[in-house]
Design a protein around this nucleic acid. Structure first.
Lengths: 205, 205
DNA sequence: GCTTGTGAATCTCTTCACAGCG
DNA sequence: CGCTGTGAAGAGATTCACAAGC
């Protein structure tokens, strides 16, 4: 559902301007600043049951709260990071302290040189302890940054351990029961797509 | 267009199994292995004008060639990497030598400590030389891994320098003339979405 | 005049289902 | 038979367009 992503984007924009604005936004402002149409903004907010006021728009602070109420789990979600290669290690500082509800609290790797440490406030465990730690910390969300060949197996273990959502960076198809949400961010495929469209538009050379 | 992504995925699968297969694939095999429906596979291949043979499926080697012919620019595309923070540096080894058509050939950063070097076969330039190097190497595709606050400005310079497609990792809306393709991979928003669905399914605690 | 809220229309993408063929 | 190719139906998501309210 794309609406969920848009709601995140609306919220981020509202938080960025918080303080320096009159307390309300119109659908066309929100739309303009987030790259969608005004009708879409209104439809999205309607869908989560948030009402505005004719002529006065939507109260910003309340809207942020409403979106948070809709999207976030109240206590926040601990996140596991599986795979401490280049990409995995780069993601740790990306999230460290940046998000109020999502925190990477445990990382896993098979390489003993990488485990036992604490990086960016995140404790690194050997891969063997995956089930144990996930159960202990009640982790439901994971980021997967292992090599493609190891992805399906790791994902299966995550799901079996209780994880319900996986953000997968490995260029591999992951097959899991549909109760588990898997979103694959495949950088190579995204680049191939972009190169394709880049070639299409304004082809000169 | 999602079809482009699926074609990339089909190709990758076919390349992975190349050699260890009978030379042909059926739409249902390809579908099964890439997570789509057989009808979709047939429709996609039809759309790029690749014909199979009733009862014998699609010739693998020719299909790979047809997809390549459709997707790739024949000479390959040099890619610029803008921003050598944690994420940018992690992407260099990710691509180094892994893709026959897409190679990161130039990287840029404002920090003089990071420039002047060659990392993973990619030369690092100061940000000032962006226009110059992009013109010289005829770069059309870029990956943007600068902080959100710098993203719009950097994207604008890239577009002005001739870049036609940008893969943006900065959590920021980028506004450019529509002749430039921008695809934003927003990790935070993807995680928020996954956490949302993770909470929805199998909610127990 | 300006907004929001929303049914209806539209557009886009996916799947169905079957003719045609080896 | 079992498979491809594809028109037609279907499902989703987006936009239109306008009533209602300030």
């Amino acid at each position: 559902m794309k609406r969920i992503e848009r709601l995140s984007v609306y919220r981020r924009f509202l938080q960025e301007i918080a303080g320096s604005e009159p307390g309300s936004v119109y659908s066309h402002e929100l739309a303009e600043k987030t790259g969608v149409t005004p009708a879409q903004v209104r439809r999205d907010l309607m869908e989560i049951g948030f009402a505005g006021h004719t002529k006065k728009g939507y109260r910003s602070a309340e809207l942020v709260a409403a979106i948070g109420n809709y999207l976030d789990s109240p206590e926040g979600d601990p996140v596991a990071l599986v795979g401490l290669g280049n990409l995995g290690r780069a993601l740790l500082p990306f999230f460290a302290g940046h998000h109020p509800k999502l925190k990477i609290t445990a990382a896993f790797d098979t390489d003993p040189l990488k485990t036992g440490r604490v990086i960016c406030g995140c404790r690194c465990y050997p891969f063997d302890q995956l089930e144990e730690v996930i159960a202990e910390e009640n982790i439901r969300v994971a980021i997967l940054t292992v090599p493609a060949a190891a992805a399906q197996k790791a994902a299966g273990r995550l799901a079996a351990a209780g994880v319900r959502g996986i953000l997968n960076f490995a260029p591999a198809l992951i097959r899991l029961p549909k109760a588990v949400t898997v979103e694959t961010m495949d950088i190579t495929i995204a680049l191939e797509k972009i190169a394709f469209f880049a070639r299409r538009s304004g082809d000169e050379s």
